[in-house]
Simulated assay, not measured.
Amino acid sequence: MSTPLQAEPGICVSLAELIEMRHRVREVQLFSTPGQRSPLIGLHHSKLRGRGVDFDQVRVYQAGDDVRSIDWRVTARTQEPHTKLFHEERERPIYILVEQSQRLFFGSGLMFKSVLAAQAAALIGWAALGHNDRIGGLVYGDGEFYEVKPRRSKQSLLQLLNRLVRVNQSLHADRRHDDEALSMALRRAREVLRPGSLAFIICDERALSSAAEQQLSLLSRHCDLLLLPLSDPLDHALPAAGLLRFAQNDAQLEIDTLNPELRKAYRAQSEARIARWERLAQKLRVLMISLSTQSEMIEQLRAYLNPHKPGKSQ
């Protein structure tokens, strides 16, 4: 068991940092409020999957009413046709599936990818809680899964954030990586999420395997999804730094970053990963927001959600 890291800005997170994210929710409109519409409104009030409605009242049947909604008990009692009226639920389960694996314990920008993932999860959680939604999620890493079932309570969100911090602070470069951690996490999510839930998938850009694609496709059949693949500038292009040597456990690797063919192949591999995510999002008809360690997370979300509005000065 590794010794938890002390919270160092950009390298690992603290619970206080994630709690503080609640004050930044107002800087980016994730969910709609009266008078304001967010691009995510299509997710939060999409066509209902399953019932997704609450009973409102019974009234006398009128021409055009759905005959399937006739209240036969009241009709028999009054000898006059009555129909049930429903209203759409104002809240829905929000499920935040967030990766905290050895693969994310890296960053050449403002922060490690694991920190970026934690910050994004916290912001989404506080925004959803402020929207009166039920919050739950799954923190997963290399062979470990920690689930918090959706509940409409601050304690539920704090439980998720606390677990997120504990896993984040236990990350280290020598941990053995599980290539199918995402697909296993998605499989677990499918077992607990009810139809109509909204799931945020926060994971490494390199995590998309064939098995994960299949699980995302199955999950999208009864849940709405928002994909948030994370990357670092070094995931997309090699620096011109000459001969580099890498070592992990007993494995060693030596590469010449000045080799033009190697640099071209590395970039092509990155472009193929990005294209794969884009094809998947288009196929499943879900939103995707790519996040990078290169710039501040709030600014990236604001640029996507409000592309025509200049950033607010801090």
Score class of each variant (00 low, 15 high):
Arg245Gln: 14
Ala127Leu: 03
Ala63Ile: 01
Gln252Asp: 05
Ala251Asn: 11
Met297His: 11
Ala268Met: 10
Cys12Lys: 10
Ala268His: 13
Gln169Arg: 14
Leu226Thr: 02
Leu182Glu: 07
Lys154Val: 11
Glu89Lys: 15
Arg26Asp: 12
Arg263Trp: 08
Ser38Met: 01
Lys47Gly: 11
Asp71Lys: 01
Ala211Leu: 14
Pro310Ile: 05
Tyr140Asp: 03
Ser292Asp: 10
Leu258Gln: 10
Val53Arg: 12
Asp66Arg: 07
Pro93Thr: 04
Gly52Val: 11
Ala275Cys: 02
Ser69Ile: 00
His172Glu: 15
Asp65Ile: 05
Ser270Glu: 02
Leu280Ile: 06
Arg188Ile: 07
Leu161Lys: 07
Gly143Cys: 02
Arg163Ala: 14
Gly137Ile: 06
Phe106Asn: 03
Ser295Tyr: 13
Glu147Ser: 13
Pro81Met: 06
Gln248Phe: 06
Gln252Trp: 13
Asp54His: 07
Val53Ile: 15
Asp256Tyr: 05
Pro4Ser: 03
Arg37Ser: 09
Asp235His: 11
Arg188Phe: 08
Pro195Leu: 15
Ser217Phe: 09
Glu254Ile: 13
Lys154Met: 15
Ser32Val: 08
Glu17Gly: 00
Pro195Ile: 15
Gly130Trp: 01
Met1Gln: 07
Gln282Ser: 12
Asp232Arg: 09
Leu15Val: 09
Leu305Asp: 03
Arg263Thr: 13
